[in-house]
């Protein structure tokens, strides 16, 4: 009977992927490119005060993203201590990509499409950018899912890894 539990490694990789994907969004799109901020559709950052208010909400977004990453790290540490969790590189890599994709899809649907609090690249063609963001997320989910499936036969827990590797 197969008593191996993949769930703890899957959830750890998923949260880490969400966190790292969230940081890509926050660092690249919010800060480096400055395409949007958390509330930039409701509060355009065209004055110093509005920019600073947006900066505050971006900061909270980053804080929650950090908590996701920290939670993933805790789950990964706990999974590594268990003898019933297969330590699969393919599964973990798949979950990292899947987590990033999950972040894009959930954030894209809720913030961009449903609530409209910001758009990926406001202005001409903003819908195309939003849909591209969603499509990229779906692509990551598909690739990640493929890797997770590829690792489904891995059954060696971390404690039983080959010494010296």
């Amino acid at each position: 009977m197969n008593r191996m539990q993949r769930g703890p490694l899957l959830s750890a990789g998923l949260l880490l992927g969400v966190g790292l994907g969230g940081f890509v969004d926050g660092i690249v799109l919010h800060q480096i490119l400055q395409w949007h901020n958390m509330l930039s559709s409701h509060l355009p950052p065209d004055t110093l005060v509005n920019a600073k208010v947006n900066m505050f909400w971006d900061g909270l977004f980053h804080a929650f993203t950090w908590l996701m990453t920290f939670g993933g790290l805790v789950l990964l540490w706990r999974a590594g201590q268990r003898t019933d969790v297969p330590w699969s590189t393919a599964t973990f890599a798949g979950c990292l990509l899947g987590g990033w994709g999950l972040f894009n899809v959930v954030e894209g649907i809720i913030d961009h499409q449903l609530l409209g609090v910001h758009h990926v690249h406001p202005g001409t063609g903003e819908l195309a950018w939003d849909l591209g963001f969603l499509a990229f997320g779906l692509g990551l989910l598909l690739v990640g899912g493929g890797l997770v499936r590829a690792g489904s036969e891995d059954a060696t827990p971390r404690g039983a890894a080959v010494p010296g590797r």
Binding site: L39, W57, F64, L67, M68, L102, F103, V106, I110
Partner: peptide, 10 residues
């Protein structure tokens, strides 16, 4: 609004 996506993900 800021928390909602993280709630869904959790």
């Amino acid at each position: 609004i800021t928390l909602l996506p993280f709630g869904v993900i959790l």
